[in-house]
Nucleic acid binder design. Sequence first.
DNA 1: CCACGACGATACGGTTGCGTTCCGACGTGG
DNA 2: CCACGTCGGAACGCAACCGTATCGTCGTGG
Lengths: 194, 194
Amino acid sequence: MLREDVTEAIRAATFQELAAVGYGRLSIEAVARRAGVGKTAVYRRWKSKLPMVIDAVSEIARMGMPVPDTGSLTGDLRLLLGFLNWALRHKLASQIIPDLLAEAARNPEIAATLATALREAQRGISAVVLKHARERGELAGDLDADAALDLVIGPLYWRVAVVRTPLPEGHLDRLASASAAALAALSGGPPPSD
Amino acid sequence: MLREDVTEAIRAATFQELAAVGYGRLSIEAVARRAGVGKTAVYRRWKSKLPMVIDAVSEIARMGMPVPDTGSLTGDLRLLLGFLNWALRHKLASQIIPDLLAEAARNPEIAATLATALREAQRGISAVVLKHARERGELAGDLDADAALDLVIGPLYWRVAVVRTPLPEGHLDRLASASAAALAALSGGPPPSD
DNA sequence: CCACGACGATACGGTTGCGTTCCGACGTGG
DNA sequence: CCACGTCGGAACGCAACCGTATCGTCGTGG
């Protein structure tokens, strides 16, 4: 009974509004205005702005990250970093993600949504990549998966979404091999002797 | 002529309000209310909320990060990470910093303030630590200082300020040695052979 | 062909914050 | 002792947004 094209227009407007003013300042009036619909259409779908935003985010978060399998840990990491860089550089995402992550510190529902939408997917991929590396003998077995994820994602997120400085040529390649070395050191240090 | 205790009360209230509702929702009325002063006292000092926030942030950002010199790269990194962890875990800072960093993507003045307040200090310390490590022969000479900073700060910031998961016992120690390995790999890879 | 329901538009009263103005109280310096 | 400027408090008109209600329109299913 609800028209899907209207729903989609509202979702798109929600993203643009989130990027423009952030969750804190986001107003349903502005979303409806931008979507070219009446406020009625919005309130008919969601009770307030929180479920509206959560729905929009959940919708987009089904974009699956590809699971890399290049044959080497450094190569897998390079693909992951490339994808992450591509996603974070998209204009809307680079504004919205840090904003929602900051808001998640105040809002448990947003935190839960982002946790399932972003981090669970990351975790699954990370587990596969690490398992392959272990099978190849590139890593020892006793690796903390969370810490490994920090070491791979942290530097690029910090650079792209926080510092927002352009990446020099070849940066992702160097980052991938540096992260591989960090993982090796973390896993007990078989290849690098320290 | 302006009473300094009032100014300080407003600054403190600004931080608490920033942590509670974020920059987007921060209102001068709420700050004055929380500080127990009249709106007059605020407008007498700053023209609007942007200069008020910038002044408060600039004020607090004079907290110098200590320059570590433990005799080893891993030890220096461990001290840096310990300080960063301590700062980021403070209740107000952990809410305010991600919020302002997200807002900085929209607001050049906030971006500039944070850049000088946070990143210039980091950069100076990073330069000293890397110089020491080079003199000790722990790193090769051709190291990109920005990339090095990403590798050290990124994982911890991601974990503490974004994921917000408790750090297990010994995590900072492992992170410090893993980061040292990453820096070695990045600098051309003399100690770890790759 | 008709009833139903979603649609955009408009208006409503209520709340919040803006930035300004005026007030009486206080305290400090001349 | 008096003038000045800051203080907290209150009120102002204005704007934005809330959530709800009420229109007439339009497309679809019965």
